[in-house]
Design a protein around this nucleic acid. Structure first.
Length: 109
DNA sequence: TTTCTAACA
DNA sequence: TGTTAGTA
């Protein structure tokens, strides 16, 4: 059975908590595939003290991209490369924006 | 829930 | 190579 719904306020997208069965249902894939993706280094979900995987909303979005890229014909290694580049690119954008106007509203205030 | 293993396309 | 299914 799935984990607790977790009373997340949505304040931390990289810290949401989903059980693997919930994520597998969301993506329409088996739990074994999610473990395979982790094994391939496509993502690294958090673990509870007991070793149960906890997927964040960020991880779910990442997994959606994984499925998309897999459907495009890439293998797991290729998906990992793309995800790495995309992650890197997003970070580069952040730094560029920050360098352009230091007082830019990052999120609030 | 976790892991591993076997089989299939 | 990736997915699926069954097992402990």
């Amino acid at each position: 059975m799935p984990e607790d719904p977790a009373p997340t306020d949505g304040s931390d997208p990289s810290r949401g908590v989903y059980g693997i069965s919930v994520v597998s249902d969301l993506l329409g894939t088996g739990v074994q595939n999610l473990r395979a993706y982790e094994r391939a280094g496509l993502l690294t979900p958090d673990r509870t003290a007991g070793g149960t995987r906890l997927y964040s909303p960020d991880d779910v979005a990442r997994l959606r991209r994984v499925q998309r890229l897999l459907a495009e014909g890439l293998n797991l290694v290729g998906v990992g490369r793309v995800l790495d580049l995309e992650d890197n690119l997003a970070d580069a954008h952040e730094q560029l924006d920050r360098a352009r106007d230091p007082q830019a509203p990052t999120s609030s205030s």
